[in-house]
Design a binder for these strands. Sequence first.
DNA 1: TATGTAGCATACGGTGCGTATGTCAAGTTC
DNA 2: GAACTTGACATACGCACCGTATGCTACATA
Lengths: 201, 201
Amino acid sequence: MAGKRLEKMEENRAKLIAAARKAFAEKGFAHASMDELTADAGLTRGALYHNFGDKRGLLAAVVDQLDSEMAARAKEIGAERAGRDEGDMWQALLGEGAAYIEMALDPEIQRIVLLDGPAVLGDPSLWPSQNSCLAETRKGVSLMVENGIMKPVDIEAAARLLNGAALNAALWVAASDNPAEVLPKAVEAFALMAGGLRATA
Amino acid sequence: MAGKRLEKMEENRAKLIAAARKAFAEKGFAHASMDELTADAGLTRGALYHNFGDKRGLLAAVVDQLDSEMAARAKEIGAERAGRDEGDMWQALLGEGAAYIEMALDPEIQRIVLLDGPAVLGDPSLWPSQNSCLAETRKGVSLMVENGIMKPVDIEAAARLLNGAALNAALWVAASDNPAEVLPKAVEAFALMAGGLRATA
DNA sequence: TATGTAGCATACGGTGCGTATGTCAAGTTC
DNA sequence: GAACTTGACATACGCACCGTATGCTACATA
């Protein structure tokens, strides 16, 4: 029966993060009220400041969670696509890129991770989570450069550019009048641009 | 002597925008106080709300100004580089990209246009200014696709991806420990990726 | 010169963040 | 197992700041 405190605490943290995801996604970070948010979670601001320090701390926790989910999903999609071609690493990279573009259509990810996140927490490379998405892309790029599949480009630079292009494309798709029609164009253009990094066979 | 009113008004608008550029760049949009900002300009919040409607309106005006300056500068740099190769459009595009990356190292542009701008005003394609930078890139891409210099890719998609990659690379460079060392890597990677859009000769 | 208007200043209300203080249940020690 | 301690969370307070409503004055018009 020991650890009942910690258990409750984790439960409350999860409740607050869940409520924050909803509030931040719907109203944006700036217009989300901490009073409302915590009340929705059945708690008060006291719990919030005790667990996360301040409003930014809560955002950081939310971003961390979303980022992890995104990286996992991208990896999954990439592996799935590579699987069709028996471990084709290049296809995996394109798959991950396409996955990022599609995921960013989700208002939660768009609003919180792509818009408010950088504005409030600074560049993703400075985030506490160290950005799992970026790490995933970096790993792929690194392997491909080693294997000669990709030109000998700077790992970090390539990862950043690929991620930046994908996420920015997603913002464009989301802001367009007809996302469903525009999405494939974005994915195609991404594949072409990424191709610039591929070693010339 | 007629029009003394309008003259003063334009002068005050300019003063407010100038003060806002400074305040937003130094403290960020959220933490910039309108009272301080207007006092620095020798005015009060009354002038602000009369001229710009609200805080967002002021940011929109500032972003518009910065965006125009950026587009003009990028065009200039691009033309300069193209000139060396007698109107090489491809070199002009790479020059513009490099120019964006370098310009984004300026805290004013980084903080206001790249971070707070999208978070507060939404995606650049929704901005009142309609984003001059994007328009400039789009124009270049359009011409090159027509002339067969670039693959027949979707104009808008290519422009967005190029801009997104460049600006995101800039954020990475700026956040790094040693920007001077990292910048050329970013520029090189950008050139490679952009090359993926080039028609295969 | 008299009058209207518009640009800007002043005054007010409301909201929301962060902190300081209080409280009570869960864990600890003898 | 009873007194004590700890810490997770609630409550209460102060302060800053945005947006609006109202007031004032210089400029424009007739």
